[in-house]
Amino acid sequence: MSQLIAIRNGVAEQVFDDPWYVPASNQQTQVLKVEDYRQWLAEQAGTSSSLVPALQLSAADEPEELVELLQQAPMVALNFEKFTDGRAYSQAAVLRRNLGYQGDIRAVGDVLRDQLVLMQQCGFSSFLIRADKNAEQALQGLQRFRYGFAR
């Protein structure tokens, strides 16, 4: 079972071939937190690697200060410590709108069906559903009415 849902070509679907979370894959690349990412970046200086890690931010991290890392990272994971902590919605909005980040923005942590559509509207493009929840059912959370202001 995969807990991952992603928007691919505008369609939300359960994903079974994710490069970041495939168990026992030799090709598995890493998801690094800010300090580890900086270190990786420093070690990479001058070399070219095909395995560029993804970046995971905590809700307190400020994307504006991480532009150098964001230029590298093909995926940014934003963590919901609790689903009631809404900071990651603004982080995603900042990433997408203010900073023009084009890669995958992934919701991880306390990620639940009833918030998926809100996340998507703020710029999230993939969702790692909390382990004890049914991801197939959670997919229905993205079929909801998408309210948009200034229609």
Partner: peptide
């Protein structure tokens, strides 16, 4: 009202 209603970024302030 329209702007605030289900404004996705500001529902978990």
């Amino acid at each position: 009202r329209q702007w605030a209603t289900i404004n996705p970024e500001f529902l978990f302030l």
